[in-house]
Simulated assay, not measured.
Amino acid sequence: MSDVRPTGDWDGTALAHEAFVFGADQELVDRVVPFVLEGLSRGEPVLVVAGERVRSLLAGELGPDLDRLTAFTAAETWWRGGHRTLHAYDRDLRALQAVAPTWRLAAEPTWLARDDGREWSRFEAVANRCYAALPYYSLCLHDRERLPEPVLDAVARTHPLTWGGSAPVPAPAYEDPERFLRSVHPAWDRRPARAAVAALTTPREARRAVSAAALDWWPARVGEVVQAAHELVLNALRVAPFVEVSSWTDEGTLVVEVADSGPGLPDETLGYVPPPTKPDSPRGMWLAWSLADDVAVDSHPAGTAVRLFFHHR
């Protein structure tokens, strides 16, 4: 009898999030096939989202059991940019939660090999917090031969579990999501002397100031810049009597900073978390983060400053 326990002591009541880094084909098969078969034996929905090579290997090993999977999908079709990909992922998770007491997912985020896909590491970090109560096992597959070392380093820091050879074990490099996010944000350099700075008390004033900066920089992105800044100003004015809005260009990037003297953000991961579907749910940070190309946060009990970065495309 095998002593391999594909999900260890996981009891199916909360998220288990494991990174499995593989090189050889057999190494992958020996990890994923028992994981899939255990789920099928327990009557759990089992989903596999992976690249062509991984799907081919698993199809050959699973044989007729392939038809018992809830999903067997090409990962190449999933990447839509970080926020849009997570939004689709969130929608599918909520749909599963409505019909299944627990489920499991083996997923290979193939887009991590692309420059524009590496921001996904931030969402992997945030998932540990925003999906902590969802009853599923997420086995994330990472090809050692395809991914550069910095990406593999981020994988190790964003997954609480790793494979120990016969069962999942705590990952020694795992970091708190907020700490990880701060480490991958753009460097927080001193605001340049050339920056346009204004202390504002209404969102309308902010829209005018930011619109002028965006029109001078790149008119095609005015709408995105203004809307993103507007959402942050609305949030800031809920906790402070005025907001300081600054803007400047740095080579091919427009930077917009919104700063307040409020009590600080209660959770710096909120900009990466899909908002609830209720009409009155707060979604300002999610929308601002979605519209900008990058974001950096400096938050403490004496105030918060958020920088939005818009690249000239």
Rank of each mutant, 00 (worst) to 15 (best):
D298L: 08
A302T: 13
V197Q: 09
R84D: 15
G43E: 06
G60K: 02
V273L: 01
V33H: 04
V210N: 00
V222C: 10
A236G: 12
G164S: 08
V297H: 04
L161G: 10
W103C: 06
V155C: 09
E251W: 04
A296L: 02
P276N: 04
H87P: 06
D250C: 08
P282N: 04
V197P: 06
S281N: 11
G284V: 08
P275H: 04
T110N: 06
V32Y: 00
D115P: 12
G164Q: 04
R68M: 11
G82C: 02
L62Y: 04
A198P: 08
N128I: 06
P177G: 06
A288P: 02
L40M: 05
E205Y: 02
L152V: 06
V46T: 14
S2W: 05
T269N: 09
V306S: 01
Y137V: 14
S138H: 08
R104K: 12
A187S: 12
F180L: 01
S138E: 08
V239C: 02
Q26T: 12
G164N: 06
R104W: 00
V197L: 07
A95H: 07
L234M: 07
N235L: 07
A107C: 12
V151L: 09
P172V: 03
R80L: 14
V239Y: 00
E76P: 12
A132V: 13
V21E: 15
L254H: 00
W103N: 13
P266V: 07
L134F: 11
L62H: 02
W289E: 09
V239D: 01
C130P: 04
R114G: 13
A95T: 13
P170E: 06
V33D: 14
D294C: 06
V297G: 00
C140Q: 08
L147P: 09
D250M: 03
S299Q: 08
W286I: 01
L234Q: 12
L58G: 14
T304G: 10
L57H: 09
L134T: 10
A212K: 05
A171P: 13
E119K: 01
L96M: 15
R313F: 07
W218L: 15
A302R: 10
G303E: 00
L40K: 05
S183V: 09
R94K: 08
H230S: 01
P34F: 02
F22I: 11
D3C: 05
D115F: 02
A288G: 02
Y89P: 10
D294R: 06
A302K: 05
R179A: 15
L28I: 10
P168W: 00
Q26M: 06
R53Q: 10
P172N: 01
L152S: 11
A209C: 12
R283M: 11
D143V: 07
E119S: 14
A19H: 07
V239G: 01
R182E: 14
V29C: 07
D280C: 05
V49H: 07
V222Y: 00
H83I: 05
E224F: 02
S281V: 08
Q26G: 15
A71T: 10
E52G: 08
L254C: 11
R313D: 15
G63N: 05
Y137S: 15
P279K: 01
A213C: 04
E178L: 04
V21D: 11
V197E: 14
P150G: 04
P192Q: 03
